[in-house]
Nucleic acid binder design. Structure first.
Lengths: 337, 337
DNA sequence: GTTAGCACTCACCACGGACGAGTGCTAACA
DNA sequence: TGTTAGCACTCGTCCGTGGTGAGTGCTAAC
């Protein structure tokens, strides 16, 4: 007795699922009727008392039903939940991604939004750290009198541009030539290498010094892009639909947490596959009543990013995990085209 | 009597300003003390009764103070408010924009965020309609075995890219040549023209048909980019700080309205200068208790976009209007570099 | 035209009792 | 030994009630 036998597991599962649905403490009578075990509420009460002692359940107050603990959710996620997205759902999720502009940046922010809509929770999209990005092409395009647009393409397919002033004796032809030369020279170098090299050249002076240091600067900016910029949030407003955020102060606190992107980065460290962090497992006190589910995606040659969903601990883990898997797969496919 | 004399205006101004600050109905005693008119509360009461009759004030219930009507805010905005941003504020606002990546897309979403932070309300940024954009350059960059990245730069400095498969006998050199040729041919044509032309060429077949129709497709996608994509929202969570949204249902309704971007477009139609729409003036029933302040900015050659702020009708109009003016100016400067 | 005084209104809040969901415990039963 | 009916008990939620105070409109005096 007091081991987590089959029946206890079934009861726990029933409680977790009922609580996920209703967000109200679950009573013994409810489980007696719904679990399909065919035992009375008194028996359930005994089992529930055991489960509480084992740390799976919490009683908000003596005359309330039970609420699952983090530990219960953990067990539920690891062993009890049954996936089973319906095909229509899967198909509609997939269709969100096809037939859209395959623009690298767009895809990521679109992904955050989409993921929010699909899961009805808040979505996070992290792009891989960019310091070890390699330059794959570099172009100067004339856009006006003595101004040019500089475009750097990295091996992840990311495109960054800036405008810069150039010597007015550089016409379209010379810019073409320079672009070509620079691309040949710089291809497959890391941004840092590009930066160092070009600052070196620029220091020697010459007519193109301005262009060279402009390029070096953009490379530097891409590289040192703050961590904050690496996380996109989508569907933050979704949490307003959940009663745990009926109190505006809580909603505000949640939103404020989302603003502090640096700390979110810890949650989004690449994992091997779909990962679930429940309540205190997130390691963030502000998120002790939230769970975070993440999945890795591939971008370009071997760079790993993370997409994730954050919501109340009583989230619909099965649906979220499946959606994330699916979206991560679609996303990887698009990005490594 | 019953004309809007000097004193009535001063009283009205005092009421509006007190209400903007406190969000509670304003009583006669408060105004008697704060207006500096040196008259008793009874006198104020008489004036307030007149102002109510004239439609400037509303009494939520008999024993409450008065609340300004849309009409009062209108008068306040048109004639009563005194601007006067402090220099530090102005400087700090400006510094938000300098020393950042001048990446076209980035600037706009950064602008939305920044504007949200500066005003503490919700910010909207609209990019000009893109159907009459002209192509200013077009590049094909090899990124892998038989795949290339296509980049289109428009005359507003906007950059869009996509990856496409190309015939594997096109090496870097041929792509360069094609890019150059296409840029020469297509420069200053509208996206629609480009699209029509290329589909025509592609129909004739040939080895490059795939590339040509790829380009046409991207041009089409840029052009037909849904209206939804043209508005960026920033700082939506700010409204949670205002007591009018203490009720989550209201906050949710507000957020939902923000999601329906098409209808927001009406609010963001380019105006000549800073424009204020108060309450029902927005023309959107859902926003009857909100005001929208907008300002135009210039982008590239003659394209006009709009930035705006949306918040409760009792918003701090003076501060918002000044901030918008300032940000619009900075933004125009960056974008028409 | 202004003001003091006064009766009146009504939103807000704190208090308190009824209600009911759910429990733990006990004793009887299979 | 596990299951169940019965029962006393707990405590959060709901709702009606009365007190409090901010603010009003009106009247009469200045």
């Amino acid at each position: 007795m007091m081991d987590l036998n089959q029946r206890k597991q079934l009861i726990l599962q029933a409680i977790v699922e009922d609580y996920i649905r209703s967000n109200t403490p679950v009573g013994s009578r409810t489980i007696s009727k719904k679990s399909g075990l065919g035992v009375s509420s008194a028996t359930i009460r005994n089992e529930m008392a055991d489960l509480e002692e084992m740390g799976y359940l919490i009683q908000p107050h003596v005359s309330a039903g039970r609420v699952p603990s983090d530990r219960a959710y953990r067990l539920y996620v690891d062993r009890l939940l049954k996936k089973g997205m319906r095909d229509e759902e899967r198909e509609s999720a997939r269709s969100y991604f096809t037939s859209r502009v395959h623009d690298m940046e767009d895809v990521l922010s679109l992904c955050a939004q989409t993921l929010g809509e699909l899961t009805r929770y808040t979505a996070l999209v992290m792009t891989p750290r960019q310091s070890d990005l390699k330059v794959s092409a570099l172009h100067l395009i004339p856009i006006g009198e003595a101004t040019a647009m500089l475009i750097i393409v990295t091996d992840t397919g990311m495109v960054r541009e800036t405008t810069l002033r150039v010597s007015d004796r550089l016409n379209a032809d010379s810019l073409f030539a320079i672009s070509r030369m620079l691309t040949d020279k710089l291809r497959d170098l890391s941004l840092r290498q590009v930066q160092d090299m070009l600052y070196g050249y620029a220091a020697h002076g010459g007519a193109d010094a301005r262009v060279l240091s402009g390029i070096a600067e953009l490379a530097g900016q891409i590289e040192s892009q703050t961590d904050k910029d690496r996380i996109t949030v989508g569907g933050a407003h979704n949490i307003l639909h959940y009663p745990e955020y009926a109190d505006v102060a809580r909603a505000r606190a949640f939103m404020d947490t989302l603003e502090r992107r640096e700390s979110l980065l810890n949650l989004m460290r690449p994992q091997e596959s779909v990962a679930v962090r429940i309540g205190y497992e997130t390691g963030m006190k502000e998120l002790h009543d939230c769970s975070v589910v993440t999945a890795p995606y591939r971008m370009g040659r071997g760079h790993i990013g993370t997409i994730g969903v954050i919501g109340p601990t009583r989230m619909d883990y099965a649906r979220v995990m499946e959606t994330l898997e699916l979206v991560a797969r679609e996303l990887s496919a698009i990005l490594s085209l």
